[in-house]
């Protein structure tokens, strides 16, 4: 099988199906079907787990392009859309957890929270970006938007930075996990910047 076949018939379907894994894990735990224990504070567990999974999916999405350039396996680019859509799905679940478990759908308090608390403000902004990217992820939208699509979808970098700050600003003391996400993000962005610099440099 060629690389293109591998990506199209094995890796991409695995990503499309595999992305449901974390949600399935939580869902089974919530229903008490398996031995998964969501602990004493399941609402908090669901919130943190969906948030962390969003960041993991986002980092994986941003890994596709550097990996493609590094390996020269161009069909890998086809993983970007399913990974991006899984990122949005977990961001949506995360936002729903916040809206229901933290705020009991009290919209006045939610708006107040978004306006007043920096970590909510940046988290909400990142969610709005991911929503816009998910809504314009179809082939039809790509054709319709043309060059503007590329510009719009560069906002993923903004969403990633906001997402890391969202995590960093809510932590009480132990910042090791959000800092680790920050380091990964810096490496992923540096890989792109390095390439631009080399391409742009005079021969």
């Amino acid at each position: 099988m060629t690389a293109s076949h591998w990506v199209g018939r094995v890796i991409r379907p695995a990503v499309i199906v595999g992305g449901i894994g974390p949600a399935l894990y939580l869902g089974l735990g919530l229903l008490g079907i398996t031995a998964i224990d969501l602990g004493a504070n399941p609402a908090e567990k669901l919130e943190h787990f969906t948030g962390t999974t969003t960041l993991v999916m986002l980092m994986l999405t941003l890994t596709v392009t550097p990996l493609r350039r590094l390996t020269g396996v161009n069909p890998l680019i086809r993983l970007r859309k399913p990974l991006g859509l899984w990122t949005f799905t977990y961001a949506l679940l995360h936002a729903l957890c916040y809206l229901v478990f933290d705020q009991s759908l009290l919209w006045g308090e939610i708006l107040h929270d978004i306006a007043k608390r920096p970590y909510i403000t940046v988290g909400f902004s990142a969610f709005v970006i991911l929503l816009a990217l998910a809504l314009t992820s179809s082939g039809w939208a790509i054709r319709k938007l043309g060059k503007r699509w590329v510009t719009l979808h560069r906002l993923i970098y903004v969403a990633a930075v906001l997402g890391v700050f969202h995590y960093l600003w809510l932590v009480k003391l132990d910042t090791s996990t959000p800092v680790a996400f920050g380091v990964v993000l810096i490496l992923l962005l540096a890989a792109r910047w390095e390439r631009r610099r080399r391409k742009g440099a005079p021969a």
Partner: peptide, 16 residues
């Protein structure tokens, strides 16, 4: 400074 103290989640509950 970073979060509200108006409500709390009693362990065992989902809503605050």
């Amino acid at each position: 400074p970073r979060w509200s103290q108006a409500r709390e989640r009693r362990i065992g509950d989902f809503l605050k």
